[in-house]
Nucleic acid binder design. Structure first.
Length: 648
RNA sequence: GCUGCCGUGGCUCAGGGGUAGAGCACCCCCUUGGUAAGGGGGAGGUCGAGAGUUCGAAUCUCUCCGGCAGCACCA
C-alpha cells in the first residue's frame, strides 16, 4: 500500500495509507469529532465518510455545524428516506431520481394512483420512523452487470435506464439506508438519525416528465423542504407566508388594480388604479429613452404572414402566434395574418424606409410594443406570464464595431433605471454560442468579446452561461433581486445579425457601398405587465409615492369638515397629486383601516381643529403616529416628494 | 400542452341527491365619532358551461371552459 499525505485546514499534515476513509481520519483525530462527522471536503470535493482517499489531499471534516454540506446531506438523505418510506408503504411503486433542490429536495415516482395529502402525512410519519431507527447508511461500488441484474430482478425500469445513461467506465455506486437500496452518486450521511426529524416537511405533489422530456411518461413528484433545525423550518414557513401576502394577484384585487376573466385568458383588464401605475411607469420610460437618444415608433398589431415568413417566425414560432384569418370580399383565399409576437420585424420595416447612411448609425428605435403570444395554458401566471403584453422594446441598428460601445451605454442606461425603481442588486449573465448556430466562429469570437468588454467598461462583472445564446448571436441577461431575495430576469440585450439579413436591411457606408447593419434587441423592464407584477410583490403593494395610484386620501372626521376636505383635495389635485376625498359617514378608524389596507401612502385626517387652523393631520402608510402640518406647507412639499425619480 | 387539485352572491369560504348559507363589501336608517372594523335593517346567487343518470342534480357521471401547483414551454 502506498502512502499519501493528508493536509488539514490548520496546515498540519499526516501520512496515511492510500484508501483511508474520512471516517477513519476523523476517528484518528478525536472520538468526539468522529461522532459528529458527517462528511469531508477532500481536495474541494464533497466526500462521503466511507469513500476511500487514494491520493494526497487537502482534507477537512464536516460536521452538522457546516451549513452547506450539512444541508446538502440532510436533504439528499431525506430524498432517499422518503423513497424508502414510499416503497415500504406501496411496494409496487417504481423509483426514479431524487435530487436536492432549493430549500429541499424532490423525488419522482411512478405510481398508478395519485398521492393525496393524506398520503403525504403517512409518508412523513414513516420517514420519522426511519430517522428514529438510526439505520446505518452503507455504500459500495458495483460492477455494471450486477447493478443491471439487481434492478432487473427488482423490476425497476427507470433505474435501468439511468444506468444506461451513466458513461461506461464510471463507477456505479449503491447506497443503503437500512435495507433499502438506491443507485446514487452520493455522498450521504453516516446513519439516518443524523437527519433532524423535526425540521423537514413534505410540501406538495405535482406531475413531472421522466427526464424532463414531454414525450416521456409523466411521473409523480413529491417535494419536500428540510433544514438543520425546527427554527429554520418555521422561518421558511414564515417566508412562504410573506411571499403569499405579496402575491400580485391578491394585491391586484385588494388594491383594485386589474382583473382577468375567462373570455380573455392571459390578458389583462387594467382598472384605473392599475393603469395609473402603468402609465406613470411608461411616461418615466419614455422620458428616459428620449434622454438616451432613442427615437420612438409605433408599428401594426396585425401583420400579414408574408412578413413572418420572411422573418423566419412563421417556421419557428407559429404555434406561439395568434393567427387571424380575414375573409375579404372577392378574395379566393382568406388573408392570413398574425398578431405580432415581437416588434423586431416591424422595426426593420421602419428602418428600411428610405436609404440609411452610416451617419444614421447607431439608430436606436424604441417602441412600447404591444405583442400577443399564444402561450401554453399551463404557462400563464397572473400578470407575470400573459398572452398580451407590452415590451419596453428597442432595436439598435449599428455596425459590428459599434456593438461594444452601444452595449456599454445600454448597461449604464439600464443601471440608472433599476436604481430609480429601487433595485440596487442585480447581475449580468452572458450567454455564449449554442451548439446549433449560424455565423462564423470569428464573428462569434468578436461579438462575445464585445459584450464581455462592454460589461467591464460599464464597471460590472458577469457570469457566463455556456451555450445558452440564441442561434444567431450571444446575449446578456440582467437579473434583479427583489426585497425578499427572489430573482427576476428582466433586462436583456441580444446581438442579431440574422434578421437584418433576412429582411434585407442595409445602409450606405463611407465607401459608398451597401452594408448590412447588426441589430441589438434590448429591453430594460422586459414587459410592463410582468415588471409591474414584480414591483407589486417587491414593494408588497406599498409602491413609492410617484407610482402609487392613489397618493393621498383626505378623510373627514366630522361632516362639518367636508368643505375643507374638498378644498384640500382640490388644492392637491391642482398640484398634480392624485388625491381623493373620503367624506363618507364612517368613523376615522374605519377610514384609516380601509385606506391603509388599500396601501394609500398618505392619509390626511381632517377634523374641526384642522379646519380652524388650516392644517392637515398627516399619517404615512406603515406608521401609526401622525403629524400635523399646515396646509401651505404640505402643498409646497408634496409635489416635490411625489415627483418621478428622473424629475426629482 | 401534460399530471393532480379546484370552480357556490363583488371578496373570503361553509354546505354536498329533496326547492341555496355565513362574514366582509353594497343599499337604507340611526349615529358626527380624533387615527386599523359604531349600531340596526335590506337587497343580492339559473352553485363555471353543456350533456347524461334520477321522480328530483349545486351535490353523481361525462365533455368542454377557466383557475391553482408543478412539469414542459419561453426560436
Amino acid at each position: 500500500m502506498s502512502q499519501i499525505t493528508l493536509t488539514f485546514p490548520d496546515g498540519n499534515q499526516k501520512q496515511a495509507e492510500a484508501g483511508i476513509t474520512a471516517a477513519e481520519v476523523a476517528a484518528d483525530i478525536s472520538k468526539s469529532l468522529s461522532k459528529k462527522a458527517i462528511s469531508a471536503q477532500v481536495n474541494g470535493q464533497h466526500y462521503d465518510l466511507q469513500w476511500p482517499i487514494t491520493e494526497d489531499a487537502q482534507i477537512a471534516i464536516n460536521t452538522l455545524q457546516d451549513d452547506a454540506p450539512a444541508l446538502e446531506l440532510i436533504r439528499h438523505d431525506l430524498a432517499h428516506i422518503m423513497a424508502r418510506a414510499v416503497q415500504e408503504i406501496w411496494p409496487d411503486v417504481k423509483v426514479t431520481i431524487g435530487p436536492v433542490r432549493d430549500n429541499g429536495w424532490f423525488y419522482d415516482f411512478d405510481r398508478q394512483d395519485p398521492f393525496t395529502p393524506e398520503d403525504l402525512a403517512g409518508i412523513e410519519k414513516k420517514m420519522r420512523e426511519i430517522i428514529n431507527a438510526r439505520d446505518a447508511v452503507k455504500t459500495e461500488v458495483w460492477p455494471r452487470e450486477r447493478a443491471i441484474q439487481y434492478y432487473k430482478d427488482r423490476g425497476e425500469p427507470f433505474k435501468l435506464e439511468l444506468i444506461d445513461r451513466i458513461p461506461e467506465g464510471e463507477d456505479l455506486r449503491m447506497y443503503w439506508h437500512g435495507d433499502w437500496q438506491d443507485l446514487c452518486r452520493g455522498p450521504h450521511l453516516v446513519h439516518t438519525g443524523q437527519v433532524p426529524a423535526d425540521a423537514f416537511k413534505l410540501t406538495h405533489v405535482a406531475g413531472a416528465y421522466w427526464l424532463g422530456d414531454s414525450s416521456r411518461p409523466m411521473l409523480q413528484r413529491i417535494y419536500g423542504v428540510a433544514f438543520k433545525s425546527k427554527k429554520d423550518l418555521s422561518a421558511w414557513t414564515t417566508m412562504m407566508e410573506e411571499a403569499a401576502k405579496r402575491d400580485h394577484r391578491k394585491l391586484g384585487r385588494e388594491m383594485n388594480l386589474f382583473h382577468m376573466q375567462e373570455e380573455a385568458p392571459g390578458q389583462i383588464f387594467w382598472h384605473p388604479n392599475g393603469w395609473t401605475i402603468y402609465t406613470e411607469l411608461q411616461d418615466y420610460m419614455r422620458r428616459k429613452q428620449r434622454a438616451g437618444d432613442y427615437v420612438e415608433v409605433n408599428t401594426p398589431q396585425v401583420v400579414n404572414r408574408k412578413l413572418w415568413e420572411a422573418s423566419g417566425h412563421w417556421d419557428n414560432y407559429q404555434e406561439n402566434m395568434f393567427i387571424v384569418e380575414v375573409d375579404e370580399d372577392h378574395a379566393r383565399e382568406k388573408t392570413v395574418n398574425a398578431l405580432k409576437p415581437m416588434n423586431c420585424p416591424c422595426h426593420v420595416q421602419v428602418f428600411n424606409q428610405g436609404l440609411k447612411s452610416y451617419r444614421d448609425l447607431p439608430l436606436r428605435m424604441a417602441e412600447f410594443g404591444s405583442c400577443a403570444r399564444y402561450e401554453p395554458s399551463g404557462a400563464l401566471h397572473g400578470i407575470m406570464r400573459v398572452r398580451g403584453f407590452t415590451q419596453d422594446d428597442a432595436h439598435i441598428f449599428c455596425t459590428e464595431e459599434q456593438i461594444e460601445e452601444e452595449t456599454a451605454k445600454f448597461i449604464e442606461f439600464l443601471a440608472g433605471i433599476y436604481a430609480d425603481l429601487g433595485f440596487d442588486q442585480w447581475t449580468i449573465k452572458l450567454s455564449t454560442r449554442p451548439e446549433k448556430r449560424i455565423g462564423s466562429e470569428e464573428s462569434w469570437d468578436r461579438v462575445e468579446a464585445a459584450l464581455g468588454n462592454a460589461c467591464k467598461a460599464a464597471g460590472y462583472g458577469y457570469d457566463i452561461q455556456e451555450g445558452e445564446g440564441a442561434f444567431y448571436g450571444p446575449k446578456l441577461e440582467f437579473t434583479l433581486t427583489d426585497a425578499i431575495g427572489r430573482e427576476w430576469q428582466c433586462g436583456t440585450l441580444q446581438v442579431d445579425p440574422n434578421l437584418p439579413e433576412r429582411l434585407d436591411a442595409s445602409f450606405i457606408g463611407r465607401d459608398g457601398d451597401r452594408h448590412r447593419p447588426v441589430m441589438l434587441h434590448r429591453a430594460v423592464l422586459g414587459s410592463f405587465e410582468r415588471f409591474i407584477g414584480m414591483l407589486i410583490e417587491n414593494y408588497a403593494g406599498k409602491l413609492p409615492l410617484w407610482l402609487a395610484p392613489r397618493q393621498v386620501v383626505v378623510a373627514s372626521i366630522v361632516s362639518d369638515a367636508d368643505d375643507y376636505v374638498a378644498e384640500v383635495t382640490q388644492a392637491l389635485r391642482a398640484r398634480g397629486i392624485r388625491a381623493e376625498a373620503d367624506t363618507r359617514n364612517e368613523k376615522i378608524n374605519y377610514k384609516v383601516r380601509e385606506h391603509s389596507l388599500g396601501k394609500v401612502p398618505y392619509i390626511f385626517a381632517i377634523g374641526m381643529k384642522e379646519v380652524e387652523e388650516r392644517t392637515v393631520s398627516v399619517r404615512r402608510l406603515g406608521e401609526n403616529r401622525t403629524q400635523t402640518q399646515s396646509l401651505d406647507e404640505v402643498l409646497a412639499q408634496l409635489p416635490t416628494e411625489a415627483r418621478a425619480p428622473d424629475l426629482a
